[in-house]
Computed example of a mutant assay.
Amino acid sequence: MSTSTPSRQAVGWAAAEARVRGAGLRIVHAAPYASTRPGQQRAAAILGRAFTVARQHEPHVRTVTARSDQDAVTALAEASRGADLLVVGRLSGHTGDTVVPSLAPAIAVAAHCPVTVVRTGPGPVHAVDRPVVAGVQQAEEDAPVLEEAFADAGRHGCPLVVLHARGPVGGGDTPAALDRALDPWRQRYPDVPVQVRTGDGGAAAELLHLSVGARTVVVGTRGRGAAAAAVLGSTSRTLLQHADCPVTVVHRTGTDRATAPRDRAASGTGTV
């Protein structure tokens, strides 16, 4: 991370999320450049600043740091094993580094858990009056998206907005069918107010509009690996680059995570 506001906010967001989940925070910095003494010193300074930010935000969260000599995508995919959430901010901000928008799609599909990309500027990201927004086409296929969104809203005491995001040629559940399909989650999370909305425009435009003032937008992607990275939806890519709030990407299928409602707390949270 650097001293930029988005980088600090990503660490603070991860620390606050770890507290709410009753989890520890593991801060991982990918530093393939650290083969020389100056590179090692630079990586240590980045991790030191990140640790300080985390402790300032959440002094009671158990926080550890780790440096990886692998590239960012490989390092974070490995760090995500066994974690409930991977929180990604900017890279170090060094002039030779790539900023997160170009790497976020690859990280999102390579990770073994949901990935939240925090690239926003100043603003309260944990305010209870900020809704969680979920983009859904079919309740069955998007069950992991719905579970993540309901669980997040439940943890933070937020309302949930479910956008019925039709595909480019229609398809998906009808709005009424989607509303009925939410009943199992409504029963599991009775304290979460739910609003189902139908977008008249494209999914990306509607979700970008809803991202203004949202806590997070939750969307899905299909599986892991190079093939998935190549077909990460244009909606997800647009949100990762332009959303006004953090964006959480959840694997719909082909991951090592269960799609049934979960009770376990996070085992770890990572951020760059």
Rank of each mutant, 00 (worst) to 15 (best):
R19K: 07
R19M: 04
V20F: 11
V20K: 13
R21F: 09
G22E: 09
A23E: 05
A23G: 11
G24L: 06
G24D: 09
L25H: 03
L25Q: 06
R26N: 14
R26H: 15
V28Y: 03
V28I: 06
V28D: 09
V28M: 01
A30I: 00
A30V: 01
A30R: 01
A31W: 01
A31L: 10
P32R: 04
P32M: 03
Y33N: 07
A34W: 00
A34G: 07
T36D: 08
T36Q: 10
P38A: 01
G39L: 05
G39Q: 01
Q41P: 09
Q41H: 10
Q41C: 07
R42S: 14
A44S: 07
A44W: 02
A44D: 07
A44C: 04
A45H: 12
A45E: 09
A45R: 10
A45K: 09
I46S: 08
L47G: 12
L47N: 11
G48I: 05
G48P: 03
G48N: 06
G48W: 02
R49P: 14
R49L: 15
R49H: 15
A50L: 07
F51A: 15
F51P: 13
F51K: 14
V53E: 12
V53G: 06
V53D: 11
A54V: 04
Q56N: 13
H57F: 11
P59F: 01
P59Y: 03
H60A: 12
H60P: 12
V61A: 00
V61F: 07
V61L: 05
R62Q: 15
T63Q: 08
T63V: 13
T65Q: 11
T65W: 10
A66K: 07
A66Y: 13
A66E: 14
R67D: 14
R67P: 15
S68N: 08
S68W: 04
D69R: 14
Q70D: 13
Q70L: 10
Q70K: 09
D71H: 10
A72F: 04
A72V: 09
V73Y: 00
V73I: 13
T74F: 06
A75E: 01
E78V: 08
S80L: 05
S80H: 00
S80M: 01
S80V: 02
R81C: 15
G82Y: 11
G82I: 02
G82P: 04
L85C: 08
L85V: 03
L85Y: 06
L86N: 08
L86A: 12
V87N: 05
V88M: 09
V88N: 04
V88T: 03
V88H: 05
V88Y: 10
G89Q: 02
G89P: 00
L91R: 13
G93E: 01
H94T: 13
H94D: 14
G96S: 14
G96P: 08
D97V: 06
D97W: 12
T98H: 10
V99Q: 15
V99I: 15
V99F: 13
V100N: 06
V100D: 03
V100W: 04
P101C: 09
S102F: 12
S102G: 08
A104H: 04
A104R: 05
A104Y: 00
P105K: 06
P105I: 00
P105C: 09
A106K: 12
A106T: 04
I107C: 10
A108P: 07
V109E: 12
V109W: 11
A110C: 07
A111G: 01
A111V: 01
H112E: 14
C113H: 00
C113S: 07
P114R: 02
P114Y: 04
V115K: 04
V115L: 05
V115I: 07
T116N: 05
